[in-house]
């Protein structure tokens, strides 16, 4: 029986008998006793995981940008509310991804990183002032499903019904791109094993599928109305 005390007193147990620490084997195999001071092992994180997060931040930022456009270009209540929900979801997911990346980055935040942060900061500031970005270099790296600069311009120029239509079609395409990214992640050897990463990617997949479905329904409603007219 293990009698070694827990190494860290802050986590020591008040139990008189030490709990047993065990690891079962494959089905049918025996269970192994582990030293009571064993520590957890984190699953491996690959470069693909980091790449996915960086790409998804970029991808999500465009959804936030699209909703920012929406606020002054439509009066469709249902769409406005729905858009706000997308925006809040994606913006807070960006926060999460940034924290995740920082914790798994191999190097200390160096000058490069600093520059990138500043760049993002600037970009978001521009978004805040609700200006559409004319700087095409921002969009050089288009993740799957992202709208091209041309498509973004068309969206920014549209109003009301036309805007609603372009927004829905664009956001459906945008969301479908996220699903492609998740697909790609899980079909890459070694990727997606980190618990937070896995949960996040799975949630993105589930929730965006639901949102796509809702947007498709809105689009269908719109078309039906058009036909009636």
């Amino acid at each position: 029986m293990v009698t070694v005390a827990f190494t860290s007193t802050s986590f020591s147990q008040s139990n008189p008998e030490s709990p047993s620490v065990v690891q079962p084997g494959a089905p049918g195999q025996k269970t192994t006793k582990l030293p009571s001071d064993m520590k957890g092992t984190l699953p491996p994180v690959t470069e693909k995981d980091r790449e996915f997060m960086r790409g998804m931040i970029h991808h999500h930022a465009q959804a936030v940008e699209m909703v920012d456009l929406m606020r002054t270009r439509t009066k469709n209540e249902e769409l406005l509310r729905f858009g706000e929900r997308i925006s809040q979801t994606q913006a807070s997911e960006i926060e999460f991804m940034e924290r995740w990346l920082e914790m798994r980055s191999k190097k200390k935040p160096d000058k490069m990183q600093h520059k990138m942060d500043k760049g993002m900061h600037k970009k978001h500031k521009e978004m805040k002032s609700k200006k559409v970005q004319g700087d095409h270099s921002e969009h050089q790296m288009l993740m799957p499903g992202m709208l091209t600069p041309k498509e973004m311009k068309a969206l920014a120029a549209a109003r009301d019904d036309k805007f609603d239509y372009l927004f829905l079609v664009g956001m459906i395409k945008h969301h479908e791109g996220a699903l492609v990214m998740v697909d790609d992640l899980f079909s890459t050897p070694g990727a997606g094993q980190d618990a937070e990463m896995f949960t996040f990617a799975t949630d993105v997949d589930s929730s965006q599928r639901v949102e796509i479905k809702l947007m498709q329904e809105m689009l269908r409603k719109k078309e039906r109305r058009k036909i009636r007219k």
Binding site: Q88, A91, I94, E98
Partner: peptide, 9 residues
């Protein structure tokens, strides 16, 4: 980074 988080957040 905190400051850089999307404005809507």
């Amino acid at each position: 980074i905190t400051g850089a988080q999307a404005p809507s957040a």
